[in-house]
Design a protein around this nucleic acid. Structure first.
Lengths: 245, 245
DNA sequence: GCAACCTCTGAAGAACCTCTGAGCGACGGC
DNA sequence: GCCGTCGCTCAGAGGTTCTTCAGAGGTTGC
């Protein structure tokens, strides 16, 4: 039956080579977490803590995508962007910015096809945006378009629409991200810690039972009156799986 | 004497060399037990009782994986992690933490691809997590993916699913761990003491007949109405073996 | 500034799991 | 065949984990 689970990500470009991403951020912890998560998704990752290093590295590494903190110790993010653009013809750039920072200015920049995420962000958000960028740039090998399917549950990431058995389901932002994470890891038990780390912002300190709460919300919307797809694995976590098995 | 049972694990990395693991913990007893179990699984093991020693050792030993106690006498676990990360590009880290320490956030850790286990833990849990980490990092030589098969009994560790003869069997956490241990040692008689040491937490003092109880539970779920696979060896222990033999 | 909505906390109850005790049955030695 | 030991299983106490309600506080959009 289902052998091949969660492909150790055959993430690669049109040319077949693995996709490369450069993470530029001066906070070591954040860089660490981002790099780890990206590597886990199959990216080939390099990182730099400042603009100068980053530009030098980009020259040889030639990344397909860049995750760029707007605030760097040496160079302004905009400068870095221009340089990158000049030296690499096709590169997708995802900005990381503080929430209250000049959103309008960034909005103008992203018109070029780039995108941005405001801090504090969740890993799921960053990963999803990056996938979106790549898809739009036509650089990603996408096995199944932008549709996520598990049983009769279908998610359209771009449209942010979720349908089960033909019925459109309305989800809040967090509910959507949680479900997306579950749908990206079907038939795999995910611990609450894993979920918290991926779906909630990295600065979410409060020990609480948010995950359980949101699972409860999701169940009410997804499983209501149907064969349940979200299952609790006591003492371990939760799994999303299609009915059969 | 020992025929080639339970291949002293052809555990080795993609490069063919045996996998190395570094155990960092200041409790000698625990280190001892962990090291022993890991060695028994085919790992090449080294250990250190504090962060400084560990980091020095890591430099020459270059472990593929690290089992790291969060509370060390000298350096904070997080510091050790950072250093390790910096010096070894690819290393899987498994944390050991006190139960209530989880609350003050080991965030981002699982996101980075690492994992943690709370004390008190069972050896099976540590070993299983470590295998999981390696698998996800693509470092392990995995003969058979994450499926454990004995006769018509199949266990999917990631999904935490157990199937016998096509029927899905629901197991509690302890039942699952016990069965996993049995399935990892098929056709081999395991003493109750061995089982207790591997499946139950190391601080489980109460000499009792839990093992018998749980074997009884398992039988009811696994063997119910079928040819028994779990056999008692009076005065010695239990064996799991496929029907034939 | 208001209304609608969302996110999180606290708390209570439900569901579930683990282990203890005890009785009974099975086995093997003699 | 009898007896002692070892193993099996029932039943239930006690603890843990999960679920859900209700509501405070914040954010968003109008």
């Amino acid at each position: 039956m289902h052998t091949h689970r969660r492909p150790p990500s055959p993430l690669h470009g049109a040319d077949g080579a693995p996709l490369r991403v450069l993470v530029i951020d001066d906070e070591p912890d954040l860089t660490e977490v981002l790099s780890g998560a990206l590597a886990g998704e199959g990216w080939e990752v390099r990182s730099a803590a400042d603009g100068t290093t980053a530009l030098a590295l980009a020259r040889t590494f030639r990344p397909h995508a860049v995750v760029l903190d707007w605030m760097l110790p040496d160079i302004d993010g905009l400068q870095v962007l221009r340089q990158l653009r000049q030296e690499l013809k096709t590169v997708c750039v995802l900005f990381l910015t503080a929430r209250d920072a000049v959103e309008d200015r960034i909005a103008g920049i992203t018109a070029g096809g780039d995108d941005y995420v405001t801090k504090p962000f969740s890993l799921e958000e960053v990963l999803a945006r990056l996938r979106g960028l790549l898809r739009r740039a036509g650089m990603a090998y996408e096995p199944d378009g932008d549709q996520l399917v598990v049983g009769d549950l279908v998610m359209d990431e771009e449209a942010r629409e979720v349908v089960r058995g033909g019925a459109l389901i309305d989800l809040s932002r967090t509910e959507f991200e949680l479900l997306r994470f579950l749908m990206r890891n079907p038939r795999r038990v995910l611990s609450k810690a894993q979920i918290l780390d991926r779906v909630w912002s990295y600065d979410f300190g409060g020990r609480s039972h948010v995950v359980e709460l949101y699972i409860s919300y999701l169940r009410k919307k997804i499983d209501a009156g149907r064969t349940p797809m979200i299952h609790t694995v006591r003492g371990v976590g939760y799994v999303l799986k299609p009915e059969s098995s």
